[in-house]
Design a protein around this nucleic acid. Structure first.
Lengths: 210, 210
DNA sequence: TAACCAATGTAACCTAGGTTACTGCAAAAT
DNA sequence: ATTTTGCAGTAACCTAGGTTACATTGGTTA
C-alpha cells in the first residue's frame, strides 16, 4: 500500500502526512461497475484514488442519468469531501468505470489535517478547483455544443480513461451517459463510421481517428 | 463596516476572526452593472458579500453568455478562492446585478486563516459545497428542462434576488442569460402573459404569479 | 413636429434531435 | 438445432426552438 500511495501522492504530500495516511487509511479494491456512492446517501469517509477510474453521474427526476466526469489516479471526489464535513447527502452517483484501488480516509482526519498540513490544504483546494472546472466543461458541452460534437468528445474521453481505442459499450449505454436516445447515438455513430473515423461491431466500437 | 460585517457574518465567525477581517479587509461599494471579474484575469483578493447580488456568467467561444448563478449576502465566490490560492486564471465573469457592498480579503490571509480558524474552514468548505450545488442545479436546468420551464425558474430567481416582482429587463437581456434568442423569449413570455401569470410592458415585466 | 431608434409582436420557415416502429442478426439459452 | 433475447440499422414522423424578415409602437432626439 505504501508504494502505491507514494507513486500517486508522494509528490503532493509531505512524509509525515503520508505516514498518517498509511496509519489510518484502509486500502480497498473495487471491481468495474461497483456503485461507490448513491444519491441521497450520507458518506462517512473520503476516497483517494490509486488506480482505475470512477464515473460520476447526475440523475433527473425520472431516474435518467447524465455523465458529469471521470475521476482518475491522484484525484478525489470533492463532492464527497463536503458531504463528509457538512454531514450532507450526496448529490451524485459514483460508479467504478474500471477496476480500481483506493484508500479510504475517515472524516475526522480530514478536518484535522486541513489545520495541520499545508500540503493537504493545497491538495483539497486543488481538488475543488479541478472538480469545478470539470463541471464547467461538462456544462459547456451541454449548453454550447451539439450532440455530434458531444459524442466525439465522449469517445475521446473514453479512449483516454480506459487507455484503449477499443470501446466496449452498447449504443444504449452511450445514450444514457449523454442523456439522449439510442436511435440518435446509432445515427451519429453510423455517420462517423461512414467518415472512416470509427468501426462499428456488436458491443464494440473501434476508434480509428477522431 | 464592523456592523455590516457582523450582521452578515457574525453568526459564522468567531470574534478573533471578525477582528482580523476588519483589520485587513477593505470595504468597497460597487454600482449595478460593474464588472468585478473577467474570464482569463488573475485575482488577487477574495470578496465577502455584505449586500446586493452578483451574477456569475460563463461564456462560449463566440462570446455569448450563460448565467450560472447569483451570489448573495453572506456568500463568497469559491471560484475566486481557488483562483487566488492556485494563481489560476478566472473561468467565469462576475457582474454586479444590483448595487453591492463587499469586503475584500488579501490572498495571504486566506491561507493563514484556513490553518488558524475552524470557523473559517467551515465557511470555506460550506461555500464550495453551495457553489457546486448551484452549478449542479444550473446543469440540471440546461440538461433536463425545456426553455419554458427554464424561463419560469429564471423569472422566479430574478424576483427573489432583486426582491421585487417588477423585473426591469428587455427580452434580449433575458435571452442572453438563458443562452437563446430574443424571438424565443418573446414567444414564451407572451404565452405566460396569456395565462395571466405576468404582464408585459416595454422594458418591464410584472410578475403576477408563477 | 418630424425623424429616429430600440423594444416588441408575429409569421413563415428550417433543423437537430426525440419518438415509434419494424427489420435483420448474433449470441446465448434451451 | 431451435428458440429466445438483446443489439444495431433505418425509415417515417414530430416538436422545440433557432432563424429571418418585417411590422408596430413608444420613447428620444433633432
Amino acid at each position: 500500500m505504501i508504494n502505491d500511495l507514494k507513486k500517486s501522492y508522494g509528490h503532493l504530500f509531505e512524509d509525515a502526512l503520508l505516514d498518517e495516511i498509511v496509519e489510518v487509511g484502509t486500502y480497498k479494491e473495487i471491481p468495474e461497475g461497483f456503485k461507490m456512492m448513491e444519491i441521497g446517501e450520507y458518506v462517512k469517509s473520503m476516497p483517494l484514488l490509486i488506480s482505475g477510474a470512477i464515473k460520476v453521474l447526475r440523475e433527473d427526476s425520472e431516474g435518467d442519468e447524465l455523465l458529469l466526469y471521470y475521476l482518475e489516479r491522484g484525484e478525489t471526489c470533492s463532492l464527497t469531501m463536503t458531504c463528509c464535513l457538512g454531514q450532507k447527502k450526496s448529490e451524485i452517483r459514483a460508479i467504478a468505470e474500471t477496476d480500481a484501488t483506493l484508500i479510504m480516509i475517515p472524516v475526522a482526519k480530514m478536518e484535522e489535517w486541513t489545520a495541520k498540513y499545508k500540503s493537504w490544504r493545497n491538495f483539497v483546494f486543488e481538488s475543488y478547483h479541478n472538480r469545478i472546472n470539470e463541471l464547467l466543461t461538462t456544462l459547456d458541452s451541454i449548453a454550447f455544443y451539439q450532440m455530434d460534437e458531444r459524442l466525439v468528445k465522449y469517445l475521446k474521453e473514453k479512449v483516454r480513461v480506459n487507455d484503449s481505442n477499443i470501446i466496449k459499450s452498447t449504443h444504449q449505454e452511450i445514450a444514457y451517459d449523454l442523456y439522449t436516445s439510442r436511435v440518435v447515438i446509432s445515427r451519429l455513430l453510423k455517420k462517423l463510421e461512414q467518415l472512416g473515423k470509427i468501426e462499428l461491431n456488436r458491443n464494440v466500437i473501434k476508434i480509428i481517428s477522431l
